[in-house]
Simulated scan of single mutants.
Amino acid sequence: MRWFLTVLGVIFGVAVFLFLDYSLPSKQTVRITDAYNRLTEIGANAIFFASPDTGTVQNAQGQRDVRFINTARPNGKPYVYRNEDTGWIWPPYFKYDSSNLQAEATDLESSAADPQWVSITSYGWRVSWASIYPNAISIKPVSGPDERPFNWGAQIILAVLGAILFLIWRMWNQFRERTIDPAVRSADQAWDRLDARADAARDHVLREAGEARGWLRRRWDRLRGR
């Protein structure tokens, strides 16, 4: 049973980590190389794109007109973002300005010869083989490729979650100390009393049985004339 609970705990921990890793905002310093729209096939990876509730239009062939932002990292490697409204769905970024963000991205395009570095805040993963893209939330110009703005959003959310977990842990400890532990001690004491009574009853029965055997032996000896 213990190994099952351990495996269950590990699976739960990994699931929570992946959930937070996908949902929390992240920041990357990049150079924007292009901003454009493209008809994109939405299939099994639909969960990683915006929900139709945000006003997204999709044609009968399962294609959607999605805004993309192409970027280059300081090490020269490409990194592609999508730019979609989130609406009121999860994660709750309440983003409705994807058109304005696309205009900002277009205005901040630059070449390798004359780079303009920006910090893009986004959420999600980039998985090339599954056509999964992080969703850009905001763009801020930075002074250079080595500048790494502090991720206040993720840190504040993690701090709030930590405080909530600590509060739940404290409430559980108080509930256990006030309710569960006394009940367990009472049950243990009741079991001990029951066990003591059972031992006393067993000793009494054994004593009575011994006395009965002794009486029968004496009667038998008398009958035999001993």
Score class of each variant (00 low, 15 high):
residue 72 A to Q: 05
residue 69 I to L: 11
residue 61 Q to H: 12
residue 70 N to E: 13
residue 63 Q to I: 10
residue 73 R to S: 12
residue 65 D to F: 11
residue 80 V to S: 01
residue 64 R to D: 02
residue 88 W to M: 06
residue 88 W to V: 03
residue 76 G to M: 12
residue 81 Y to E: 02
residue 76 G to L: 09
residue 91 P to Q: 05
residue 84 E to H: 06
residue 61 Q to E: 11
residue 53 D to G: 02
residue 73 R to M: 14
residue 77 K to C: 05
residue 83 N to P: 10
residue 65 D to R: 14
residue 64 R to W: 04
residue 64 R to P: 01
residue 58 Q to Y: 03
residue 62 G to T: 13
residue 65 D to Y: 08
residue 82 R to I: 00
residue 74 P to M: 10
residue 56 T to S: 04
residue 81 Y to A: 00
residue 85 D to Q: 00
residue 52 P to K: 13
residue 77 K to W: 09
residue 60 A to P: 06
residue 76 G to P: 10
residue 93 Y to P: 03
residue 70 N to I: 07
residue 87 G to D: 07
residue 79 Y to L: 12
residue 89 I to D: 05
residue 53 D to R: 07
residue 67 R to K: 15
residue 78 P to V: 01
residue 80 V to C: 02
residue 56 T to L: 04
residue 55 G to Q: 08
residue 71 T to A: 12
residue 58 Q to G: 05
residue 77 K to N: 12
residue 66 V to N: 05
residue 58 Q to V: 13
residue 85 D to T: 00
residue 91 P to G: 06
residue 83 N to C: 13
residue 80 V to N: 00
residue 60 A to L: 14
residue 54 T to Y: 10
residue 71 T to I: 15
residue 74 P to V: 07
residue 76 G to V: 09
residue 72 A to M: 12
residue 87 G to A: 09
residue 88 W to C: 03
residue 68 F to M: 12
residue 63 Q to V: 13
residue 76 G to I: 09
residue 57 V to W: 05
residue 69 I to V: 15
residue 81 Y to D: 03
residue 73 R to H: 13
residue 75 N to D: 15
residue 69 I to A: 12
residue 87 G to Q: 11
residue 90 W to L: 02
residue 52 P to Q: 14
residue 70 N to W: 08
residue 84 E to F: 06
residue 62 G to S: 15
residue 90 W to A: 03
residue 86 T to G: 01
residue 71 T to V: 15
residue 92 P to H: 11
residue 84 E to Y: 04
residue 84 E to Q: 10
residue 67 R to C: 04
residue 92 P to I: 06
residue 86 T to F: 00
residue 67 R to P: 07
residue 63 Q to P: 06
residue 83 N to K: 00
residue 91 P to S: 10
residue 59 N to L: 11
residue 93 Y to S: 03
residue 77 K to Y: 11
residue 84 E to I: 06
residue 69 I to Q: 04
residue 82 R to H: 00
residue 87 G to T: 07
residue 66 V to P: 06
residue 75 N to C: 13
residue 63 Q to N: 15
residue 70 N to C: 06
residue 62 G to E: 15
residue 85 D to F: 01
residue 58 Q to P: 05
residue 59 N to Q: 13
residue 92 P to C: 07
residue 92 P to T: 04
residue 52 P to R: 11
residue 54 T to L: 07
residue 87 G to E: 08
residue 70 N to A: 11
residue 68 F to Y: 15
residue 60 A to I: 14
residue 89 I to T: 11
residue 74 P to H: 08
residue 90 W to I: 04
residue 62 G to A: 15
